[in-house]
Computed example of a mutant assay.
Amino acid sequence: MTESVKGPAGYFPSIEKKYGRSIAEWKNLIHTSPLTKHMELVGWLKAEHGLGHGHANALVAHTLAEMSR
């Protein structure tokens, strides 16, 4: 029996499928962006890269959480 992924990472398979980029690529974009605030990054991913709000939010939340460890 496999356990389902919980939290923001649960969106990752559908993000990769829908937008054609790996999660590593999205994280790299977030890391290299001059923006640092959560909602600024979400807005940027939506406006510049066409992501939906939930997908952008999941990527930003996961990436910023990793950065704060």
Rank of each mutant, 00 (worst) to 15 (best):
S22K: 01
I30G: 07
E40G: 05
K18D: 15
G54F: 06
A65N: 08
A56M: 08
F12T: 01
V60T: 04
H38V: 12
G43K: 00
N57L: 08
K37C: 12
K46C: 15
A65I: 08
E16Q: 12
T63Y: 03
E40P: 00
T2F: 14
N28L: 10
N57F: 06
V42R: 01
H31V: 00
K17A: 14
E48F: 06
E3L: 05
A58H: 14
P8F: 05
N57H: 12
G52F: 12
T36S: 04
H49P: 10
G50W: 01
L51Q: 07
G10T: 06
L64D: 05
A9I: 05
S33T: 03
T63W: 05
Y11L: 08
R69Y: 15
H49K: 00
L35W: 11
I23G: 11
L29S: 05
H62Y: 03
S4E: 10
G54W: 04
E3S: 05
K18H: 15
L59W: 01
Y11S: 12
K27N: 09
G52A: 13
S4H: 13
W26G: 10
K6T: 08
V42K: 02
V60Y: 07
G20Y: 06
E16D: 15
N57W: 01
L45P: 10
M1C: 12
H55Y: 12
Y11T: 11
S4W: 10
A24W: 07
V5M: 08
L29P: 09
M1V: 11
L45E: 04
E16F: 09
V5G: 06
K17H: 14
R69W: 15
E48S: 07
E3N: 04
L41T: 01
L41N: 01
G43Q: 13
S33K: 01
A24G: 13
A9Y: 04
W44F: 04
E66W: 07
P8D: 00
I30N: 00
G7R: 13
S68R: 14
R69Q: 15
P13V: 09
G43Y: 05
A58W: 10
L41H: 05
E40W: 04
